[in-house]
């Protein structure tokens, strides 16, 4: 077990194994997202209340799921980095943050656009949208803090601490915002919480969610590999690897 963890922690080992894993996740992501999109856009029946505008759910919900999951993944990576000093964990956390912020933005944008046909306005202080907006600020804070340090080690540790503090606060923020929303707006019509969605409606949603998760894993593997090259450029194994590629090109 320990040997495995430390092996996983070695950038060289990770660089090798991620090269093998990456294509599978890209393929899964492409297959799932294309299938889910076609199904959700063209084949799923229209909603009896919202008509075709409900099809926004197939991008809104996966993005919102991913936005929250990425923050948790980032905090867990931060914890692994702080406890076991595994650098790959911090590299992964560093590349996850922008994707998480992008997903939060997608969830916010699709929610706002969905609001026009549903509520007749671009923005409602709906509980889900409000929590998403706060999550976006949390992401921006982590990204900005990492960028503010000149020493990479300090930046990594500071970002890890902030991600952990944030992840403890996310459920608290979520519950207090939910509570605040029900107090001020007696639950009129929330975007996605509805009783018993028929199978042909939620199955494409499940496929899209899985597709988004595969995309996240594939992209994180890819960008972590780049981050490894960037940080380990002076290491022997990277230079050997590059030399090998240069020789091959001749």
């Amino acid at each position: 077990m320990w040997a495995f963890i430390h092996k996983l922690g070695s950038p060289k080992w990770f660089y090798g194994i991620s090269a093998k894993l990456q294509p599978w996740f890209w393929a899964a992501a492409a297959l799932l997202i294309v299938t889910g999109s076609l199904w959700g856009l063209a084949f799923a029946p229209a909603d009896y209340q919202q008509g075709n505008s409900f099809r926004i759910i197939y991008v809104h919900v996966p993005a919102a799921f991913l936005a929250q999951s990425i923050f948790i993944a980032m905090a867990v990576s931060g914890l692994v980095f702080m406890v076991w000093k595994i650098k790959v964990a911090d590299m992964a956390a560093a590349v996850m943050a922008p994707l998480g912020a992008a997903m939060t933005f997608v969830a916010l944008f699709s929610g706002a656009v969905w609001g026009v046909p549903t509520w007749g306005t671009w923005w409602m202080w709906d509980a889900r949208l409000t929590s998403m907006l706060i999550l976006l600020f949390l992401y921006l804070g982590v990204i900005a803090l990492r960028g503010a340090f000149t020493s990479r080690d300090s930046a990594s540790r500071a970002a890890s601490v902030l991600a952990m503090v944030g992840v403890i606060n996310i459920p608290i923020i979520k519950y207090s915002v939910d509570w605040w929303y029900t107090l001020h707006q007696p639950a009129s019509f929330t975007l996605t919480s509805r009783p018993a969605m028929p199978t042909e409606m939620w199955l494409p949603l499940v496929i899209m969610v899985l597709g988004f998760y595969s995309f996240f894993i594939a992209l994180t593997l890819m960008r972590t590999r780049s981050e490894i090259l960037r940080r380990e450029a002076n290491k022997r194994w990277v230079q050997d690897l590059v030399n090998g590629q240069v020789e091959e090109a001749r």
């Binding site: 229209a46 008509g51 099809r55 926004i56 933005f105 997608v106 699709s110 656009v113 026009v116 046909p117």
Partner: peptide
């Protein structure tokens, strides 16, 4: 999209573009 074209396509478009 049953009259909801601007909303559905802009949400999907922005998502696809970002991905």
């Amino acid at each position: 999209m049953g009259g909801h074209a601007p909303y559905v396509w802009s949400a999907w478009g922005v998502t696809a573009l970002l991905l």
